[in-house]
Write a protein that binds this DNA or RNA. Structure first.
Ligand SMILES: [Zn+2]
Ligand SMILES: [Zn+2]
Ligand SMILES: [Zn+2]
Ligand SMILES: [Zn+2]
Lengths: 133, 133
DNA sequence: ATCTTCATGACAACGATTCTCATTCCCGAG
DNA sequence: CTCGGGAATGAGAATCGTTGTCATGAAGAT
């Protein structure tokens, strides 16, 4: 009864290394398909399914952050660990990690005031960066 | 050259009235398909395509708020006008509209500090409400 | 080297959303 | 009121991101 019935190992395969390497190359958020392209462009061949699976595993392990496009598409990015939010350029995708202790407290307080427990939140800032002026 | 080339009318049809009515009945965020079901349950027959189109039109006109599930599904809700955010129950969908002037200022400031212009943001708080304790 | 098990990938399947287009029916001009 | 043009509808096909299937390949323990 050790709960989840999913593998516990995490083997280091050529494919996983390729995806990780691609994620290091890029600075902004990318879709799974874009990452698949990047991996390919770097000369590594990895199946699209595997890219999706790897990205999901990395997200579960908090090795990448995920955010959703207005259209619902998932975008991934290698981020520093720890809770933070993003300031993202709408045009070029350039991303800055930001922290806001005040916001964190505000959100928790609002939730508590209304009797909500087990609180979490999402917060992203979008704009146009200087180079995209 | 009056810009957009999309219809300018907005005819009041039975279908649009039905969707609007359904939106009044519900308090939390619902998917287009759920709203389609609710409309049907109320005795009005409206095509799914029309529900989607109507909801989109209402969103464009700021008559409903839209938010995205973790899985990327769009949820709609009739909201008060004006900028605000939501505290949403993960289980039952109960929603409370919240405002946070401090957060608004913080977000704009962060963006400005990094040279970003034309700033916007998304912010939602999730939790489990009392009745879902 | 061998074996167990997880990982891979080509392809099918899925589900939400959008598109197509023939038909319906608002609604304002006459 | 009645017509006619054009917006609105809806059934079904098409899209597209994502997930499932399953036979085959390859880590890694022994
Ligand atoms: Zn930019
Ligand atoms: Zn936070
Ligand atoms: Zn609840
Ligand atoms: Zn705000």
């Amino acid at each position: 009864m050790t709960s989840t019935d999913r593998p516990v190992s995490a083997r280091t395969t050529r494919q996983r290394r390729a995806v990780s390497a691609a994620l290091v190359d890029i600075t902004g958020f990318c879709s799974a398909q874009e990452i698949h392209e990047i991996v390919k462009r770097r000369g590594d061949a990895v199946g699209l399914s595997t890219v999706y699976r790897t990205l999901q595993a990395m997200a579960d392990a908090d090795e990448v952050d995920v955010l959703r496009t207005d259209e619902g598409e998932a975008l991934y990015r290698r981020c520093s660990s720890g809770h933070h939010h993003h300031l993202v350029c709408r045009d070029c995708g350039r991303t800055v990690e930001v922290e806001g202790p005040t916001v964190e407290r505000w959100a928790d307080r609002v939730a508590a005031d209304h009797g909500f427990a087990d609180v979490s939140h999402t917060l992203e800032i979008f704009g146009r960066c200087e180079s995209c002026g």
